[in-house]
Write a protein that binds this DNA or RNA. Structure first.
Length: 399
DNA sequence: AGGTATTCACATGAAACTATTCTCTGAGTTAGG
DNA sequence: TAACTCAGAGAATAGTTTCATGTGAATACCTGT
């Protein structure tokens, strides 16, 4: 059967989704469940902004998928509409500091902020303090309050230190008319402990913790989303509960639960089934994991791929691998793929990063008289390993 | 036997270097009046 | 004389290299019994 037939039957088969949007990660529901307290608290802290007073800086902690970003965004949106109605000059800017090539360095963060204020800044070439100056000028055009949200700030400081945060907290001193209020969001609870004490005290004048959701709450949230997203009676009984249970086990990450539900729905739909079954959930979980690994691996730079390929080669023979062995194999791989060989120092870092990405498991062990090294294990499924190896071979043009 | 001291095989840190991409500046060139 | 071109100086960034220092515990090497 041709592609045309496929599209025909695709059109004819009715979708399971009524409004798939509701399961997207960017979706903001009208009502945020189980976060009344936190919402109220944020509102209390930020309310002075509506009277042209600078609110205290706020720091929001909580594990991934506990509704931090959603809540903050929600409050800001409502504040902006109210401000507009009463013609109060209030602006909020949201940046995610983790986004590569967007806001993950000092220069780029400020550049991004300027962009949000409606001006373009070249991606490179300007000295950083010049960029700061442009930013100051843009801010200080009139008397107004800026609410500046830095999502995943921990990533930022991890990469480039806390100097920017210090600068940002000091901006208010230099501004004549405008004032900015910083709202940091982090999913690392001990994050501020690595911070310069000055930054720490000024950044977290107010702190707020988002506890993880429990299984029952996740169920309710899922139900809320599911009723908008799916047609009635599309979910088989038990699916929602199972999905919630999965997520509850993963420290109450609702985002994951929602993704899982969406993917399960997609799978059911693709199979032409009328209902989402529990089996689809299992399949969805597996698929998400595999997709993630494949995606991440193939998007890594060549050298990472070469290292990973070496690991996979060795892993077929033995369980626990050490840095030195991997390096030897890696050198061979490099020769074959005609790329240049990096130092062991660098490979050590690459191994650490692959570990961070969750592709491999690395643990530093001491073998006593026989030295200290990383012990690396591969816990991926055999099928996935085979596939990954094949793809890497193609990408590296090896063997 | 029990207690130190060594030693291995890397890990971890800091600084400096390289290549790439981009802006800005000012000298030299061109074209028009 | 104004507009244009183009090379060179400077920046930011990613990815490395170089050099220096750190480290956990299995062994080697004592010591005194």
């Amino acid at each position: 059967m041709g592609v045309g037939d496929f599209f025909d039957s695709y059109l004819k088969s009715d979708s399971l989704f009524k409004e798939k949007q509701a399961l997207a990660s960017s979706y903001i529901p009208d009502q945020i469940l189980f976060r009344e307290e936190q919402l109220q608290e944020i509102a209390n802290i930020l309310a002075p902004a509506l009277r042209h007073e600078k609110p205290s800086n706020l720091f929001v902690y909580g594990k991934t998928g506990s509704g931090k970003t959603l809540s903050v965004k929600h409050i800001l949106a409502t504040m902006e509409t109210i401000a507009q109605k009463n013609s109060i000059s209030l602006r909020s800017i949201y940046v995610n500091c983790k986004l590569k090539k967007v806001a993950d360095t000092e220069y780029r963060l400020i550049a991004q902020l300027i962009k949000e204020l409606g001006q373009e800044i070249p991606p490179t070439g300007l000295p950083t303090d010049e960029v700061y100056n442009i930013f100051y000028r843009l801010l200080d055009t009139k008397k107004q309050i800026f609410l500046l949200v830095l999502d995943e700030v921990d990533q930022l400081t991890l990469k480039i230190g806390d100097e920017i945060l210090y600068n940002l907290t000091r901006i208010n001193v230099e501004l004549k008319q405008a004032q900015i209020c910083l709202i940091g969001i982090s999913n690392n609870l001990v994050f501020t402990e690595h911070l310069d004490p000055r930054v720490k005290s000024s950044l977290s004048e107010e702190e707020l913790i988002f506890p993880p959701y429990n299984a029952l709450q996740i169920q309710d949230i899922l139900r809320q989303r599911a009723t908008t997203a799916f047609y009635d009676n599309t979910l088989q009984p038990g699916v929602l509960e199972k999905c919630a249970a999965y997520a509850a086990r993963e420290h109450g990450d609702v985002r994951r639960a929602i993704d899982l539900l969406r993917v399960a729905g997609e799978i059911a739909e693709r199979n032409g089934q009328k209902k989402v079954e529990i089996a689809h959930l299992d399949e969805a979980e597996k698929k998400m994991e595999t997709d993630k690994i494949l995606n991440v691996s193939l998007n890594q730079p060549k050298q990472f791929q070469a290292v990973l390929y070496s690991i996979l080669l060795l892993a077929t023979q033995r369980r626990n691998l050490f840095t030195g062995e991997i390096y030897e194999v890696y050198k061979g791989v490099c020769k074959q793929s005609k790329s240049n060989v990096l130092t062991q120092r660098r490979i050590s870092d690459i191994l650490a990063e692959l570990d961070m990405l969750g592709i491999i498991n690395a643990k530093i062990i001491s073998k006593g008289r026989y030295g200290r090294t990383r012990e690396i294990t591969v816990t991926l499924e055999d099928l996935l390993v085979a596939k990954l190896r094949e793809l890497l071979e193609k990408s590296l043009r090896v063997e």
